[in-house]
Structure formats: structure tokens, C-alpha cells
Nucleic acid binder design. Structure first.
Ligand SMILES: [Mn+2]
Ligand SMILES: [Mn+2]
Ligand SMILES: [Zn+2]
Ligand SMILES: [Zn+2]
Lengths: 140, 140
DNA sequence: GCAGAGGTTAGACAGAGTCCAATTCTTATC
DNA sequence: GATAAGAATTGGACTCTGTCTAACCTCTGC
């Protein structure tokens, strides 16, 4: 989706390209997600963004993550009952989820084929599909 | 998994068969889940169980649902970021999830085939797979 | 520079879920 | 049927994630 240019200047351009006014806070939040390319919770984003000097509030982190999701910049991953993770990888893909460590790993959706799904309920349209493979440490 | 005998006496036997001491509260909670055969949140279970006369605490509902999950009597469904649902259907199956109404519908896993999944990460063993198809109302 | 829209903020609030020490129940044994 | 010991339940305090609000700030176009 983006190359490897995670400079603030380039991130600002990416935000503009999605119709988002690039503020300091939004750029820092985008930087946290895209430079780490990891599945981060809101709390983790808040911590990363305020590592050097506190400059972004909890409310702004939540507002911004929601905005990013709505504009397709990042994707929500719902695997843990206690918190949502935000995924800078918006290519179609699935996830391994380690139920012991919480680690989330991507699975390229292009290599996976799913057949035999029933028709959608009448009057309904698809909004997305999640495949989550829960794994745990093999017996020692 | 069970027939259609949702009598308290039979539910008590089912619990014993899973190594669970059948208390009044546990039997009522099992009754709520199996007689409705629906995906219920802890809060919904609490409300159902205390419909006639309050007799079960929130702590017991959570304790019991956890116990039922651990003993394989029910299954957790993690689709909504704000709460867990408990599923009395433990046959392999997937879910439609209406992101607008919250409605959850079962998809028989026997009819669905998934190919091309990568190998599990080294040292990991599968603990389950969830397929969630998020749907919404078709544009009016 | 000014105005107005849009963005940010602290902190109060809500809801799901956990924890604890005190109490009550279940069950095995007599 | 009574007893005793372990198991289960309980209210309520607590934690954590996420939302909301009203005041304040900042950016942009004029
Ligand atoms: Mn939760
Ligand atoms: Mn939540
Ligand atoms: Zn991912
Ligand atoms: Zn189900």
C-alpha cells in the first residue's frame, strides 16, 4: 500500500490522499503503525506516540484510529476479547493468533481458497471476511 | 451434541458427564444456552437466568461460562469488539455476523472447504479456526 | 489578521470482565 | 439424617477499554 517511505512528509501526503487533514498527532499515529508494520492496540499506539514527549491524548488516538479505519488506511482485527488491534496491512489477508502470547501473524489471502460458503442471508451484502487460526505452543 | 431434552434433570446429567458438579446456578445457565440454542453474551445469560427470581450473581455467570468453555460444553465467539458471545453449538461451524444488528448466524463447516493455508508457525499447534463473514443490510 | 470550521484535550463516564473475602452449598461418610 | 470439608457462590470494589463532552486550540481561506 505504501512503499518504505515512512517520513513524516510522505505520511502527510498519504493522509491528504485519503482526504484526511494531516495534523501532528495524526502523522505520529500513522508513523507508529506504518513504521512498525505491526498489529497494535490503541493503548500501544498511545504509548508509542508519547514515548519521547507527551503530545497526543487518548481521545485523539481513538478518534484517529477510527478515522483511519473508516477511510481504509488501516484495518481492525478482532481476535482478542479484551481489545481491538489496528492493522496497517490492508491487503486481503488472514491471521494466526497465538492465544497464549497474543502474537498476531499475517496469512496472505491470495494463497488461500475458500469454497462452499452458503449464500448470504437475504437482503444482506458482504462487508468483509475474517479467517483466524488460533494457535498455541506445542506440548513441551 | 445433546438431543432436545433440556430438562433440568438431563442437563444435570450432561454436566456430570463433563466432570462438572451440577449446581442450581450452573443448571440454569446451561438451560438458558441450550434451550435457546442462541449466541448469548454473559449479560444476556445473566438476565435470562434471573428473569423469574434473582438467584445467580454476575460473578457466577462469568465463572460458569468460563468453566463451560474449558470443558468443551460451549464455545466462545469473538466477533464484536465489545463483548464475547457463548455458543451452545460446538459442532465445527463458522458465522455470519451482521455488523449493524449484531445478529450471529451459523454456517455448517462441513460444507465449506478451505485450501492453501500455510503451515503453522514452528513450535505451534492449532487450537481452532474461526471464519467470520461480516455482512450488512444491502443498500436500500 | 480574522473568522469559522475542524481538531485536540482532560477528565468524567459507561460497560465488560475480574477479584476477593465472607458465606453458603454439595457431597461423601457415618 | 447429621456432620464435616471442600467446592461454589456472592456483593461489591476494582480494572480496563472505549466513549463523550464542552472548552480550547489550530489551520486555512479570505
Ligand atoms: Mn472485555
Ligand atoms: Mn472494548
Ligand atoms: Zn494483519
Ligand atoms: Zn455458532
Amino acid at each position: 500500500m505504501m512503499n518504505t517511505d515512512y517520513s513524516r512528509a510522505n505520511l502527510a501526503e498519504v493522509l491528504r490522499g485519503h482526504g484526511i487533514t494531516p495534523t501532528h498527532q495524526r502523522i505520529e499515529i500513522a508513523h507508529a503503525l506504518f513504521s512498525k508494520m505491526a498489529h497494535l492496540s490503541a493503548d500501544q499506539v498511545l504509548a508509542i506516540v508519547n514515548e519521547r514527549h507527551a503530545e497526543t491524548s487518548k481521545a485523539t488516538v481513538y478518534n484517529t484510529l477510527k478515522l483511519f479505519v473508516e477511510s481504509g488506511l488501516v484495518r481492525e482485527v478482532i481476535v482478542d476479547p479484551s481489545k481491538v488491534f489496528f492493522d496497517p496491512n490492508t491487503d486481503p489477508h488472514h491471521h494466526f493468533y497465538d492465544i497464549e502470547t497474543g502474537e498476531i501473524t499475517d496469512i496472505d489471502a491470495a494463497k488461500v481458497s475458500i469454497a462452499g460458503l452458503p449464500e448470504l442471508p437475504p437482503g444482506k451484502v458482504a462487508a468483509g471476511m475474517d479467517v483466524i487460526i488460533r494457535v498455541k505452543r506445542a506440548i513441551a
